[in-house]
Design a protein around this nucleic acid. Sequence first.
DNA 1: ACCGCCGGGTGCC
DNA 2: ACCGCCGGGTGCC
Length: 832
Amino acid sequence: MDDFSDLELFDDESSQSQASEPYLLGFVIANIVGLRYYHGTINRREMVGLVREPLNPHDPNAIKVINVRAAQVGHIERSVAAVLAPLLDSFTISVGAIVPKPPNTPKPYRLPVQIHIFARLAASAFVLDALAGGGLSLISDPNPGFALSEAAIVQEKKPDEATRLDDVFAMVGKNDAGIVPLEPPKDIVLTELLPHQKEALGWLVDREDPCNLPPFWEEKDGGFCFLLTNHQTSDRPEPLRGGIFADDMGLGKTLTLLSLIVTNRPSYTAHGSKKSNSRKKPGGSRKKRKLNEEDDQVSGPRTTLVVCPKSVLSSWVTQLEEHIQVGALKVYLYYQERVKDIEELKKYDIVLTTYNTVASEYGSGASTLESIDWLRVVLDEAHVIKNTASKQAKAVFALNAERRWAVTGTPIQNRSSDLYSLISFLRFEPFATKTYWTSLIQLPLHKGKESGMLRLQSLIGTITLRRTKDTCCDGQRLVALPPKIVETCFVELSAEERECYDEMESQAQSIISRYIDAGTVLRHYSTVLYCILRLRQICNDVALCPSDIASLLPTGALEDVSNNPELRNRYLSMIEDGDDFDCPVCLSQPEKVVITHCAHIFCEACILKVLKRTNPPCPICRRQLSRSDLFLVPPTKTSNDNEDDLQKMVNFDRPLSSKVKTLLKLLITSKEANPSEKSIVFSQFRKMLILLEEPLKAAGFRVLRLDGSMSVKKRTEVIQEFGKNGSHSSTVLLAALKAAGAGINLTAASRVYLVDPWWNPAVEEQAMDRVHRIGQKQEVRIIRLIVKDSIEERVLELQERKKRLVGGAFGRKDPKSQANMRVEDIRTMMHL
DNA sequence: ACCGCCGGGTGCC
DNA sequence: ACCGCCGGGTGCC
């Protein structure tokens, strides 16, 4: 099952293809009403934000109007809101708004506003109808062909948005001339920071209490002016505390963040129990706070919430243990079992949790994480929230914190909308409000206007720090790494293996070419993947793959009960209740267990015999049964059945597969040359790793294994163990490609074997980067094992093509952006 | 008068 | 709001 986890058919990129970018349909005139009830001020020709208010008790269609300071100005009049709300809620349109006339003094009751309507070309007819049906007249440009020609321009311009976005970070660093490198307290952060990390720390500390006005604000006649919308106010705008920390992978972001947490630790009263309502007033405390300043009055929040993907948790734990003085920081792992006591959690310096944990509490009405005012929230691998509609994104948006950080090694994935989610998380007003983002950034950008690009650069430039491994620091490359050599070792199959492979491949080819001819590949995607999977397995070892491919096709195989959670739970509870387990047909313990839709249990063989009769009934309850009512129960995961089977398979006196033999030979040769050299063996197949363990041990290697099924704690232990040196230390780590997620440091090794190729080169690259990163002192040798004349060679071909395709500057290292296989790729891989 | 008309109260959503 | 709308008071000429 795990092998399929990344193989979504379409990523979101394809669903919002270039042709479907919103364009300006025109605008409607409406009134902002209820101005007398709110304090939000507004100036002439000022842009305002429109925000849906579905929970408004007076009108579920309510749309409120806010200014750049997010202060409410009024509402859109009811009749217009009634038309727009459904279109907004269904994401059919997006809107921007501008107040054309200056409000009179004294304050009027209502104010006309132009609402610009944006829609995708495909939806425009529907939107026009809906607007007309609601009695709204849409005004488009005097030029009657405006809307369409505009759309055409947008489509023409769109393809190079990606290229132009490469420039977004051009500004980053340009404003940073004034960065002063900073040392963290040495008694707590035990590791000496590298020069670029000290610079980053200086920048982070500065960003948490910035002196300058936020971008696009200007001081003017004793007041303040937001230049982009002409908003004037006498209140100083709140500074944005935090930002985007987007250094490349491997530059030590986690260590730098830990240093920030230590360095900017507020001082507290004894146990900070009295509630602080000293929310920073605008204009107050403009002066830089001195570090570690004694201040008995401060009793604000002390806790930093770190949210990261599960795969990175262990890396945080490891880095804490490695770099931070024991006991200096109180850290709580809020994951699985977790304390719900808010006051208790507030006593920690760091609460470490995952996106899924935050998401699982979101909207429950009793979210512990949401009810705490955090000192800061750090989102690690923040690009995971790029979809603002996802539950994870919504959940982290709801977190309250004085300071907010989005941390990512892959900040831009070729679309400005990915940046929006980060801005939105940072609560970087007014851009965090969708209507402002759309009108101030997104739209000018799509129209190809320079202003959009300049604005985006300027705002990203102020709040982002990004360096790559190639960035220079005092004329030196930030990170000088020893060389990395990638070589390919071709494996010849034995005659026996070759026969099996060819047989399987021609079966698979005939199945898949039939789908391709019928144009139904995508509908049979899982079958296709199954075929490909099997072929890849045979290249590793025939034992990974049952011999008859036909029996593996969905039409032949019974569905797995894990696809039917309700039934699976019933089955599990039946086992727990100690129900009798024997097959009622043959009265013995079933070998392969099948559970029926009516929840009765049989041997697979017995119930299949029953099924051969006409109109077969369930032998127990007499209900009619068909094949689709049967679900195969896999051996229980928690038991060792699976591994025992594999061990049996390994010890069955079977000759080793060609690939295993080759790998062994390579390992033995390098061991003879250098007995203490450590190697990592990556495979996508957990079974392959298990299968390798015995032969390696038999050949005298000390072996460790790291795979996705291990707990966070166990993984951390394994990585630590692997890092140890000495005559009894382990020299080979068998690792699942995916388990080596971002952040894991495997620099103890200097040799990497990629046992099987992954069609997305970025995934392999990520795995290699775990070894070839800061801290690596030796030359790194990477050896990929490829079976000649097989699907593996074609996977290499595919990789090359993908690499050429994404030659651009961004997204290159983002495994997600090219995670999916398309029909053309399938053709290549199947030699069709 | 199951109306028209008058004039006071009232006012976002 | 110098409006519209609501609802109570009122009622031939």
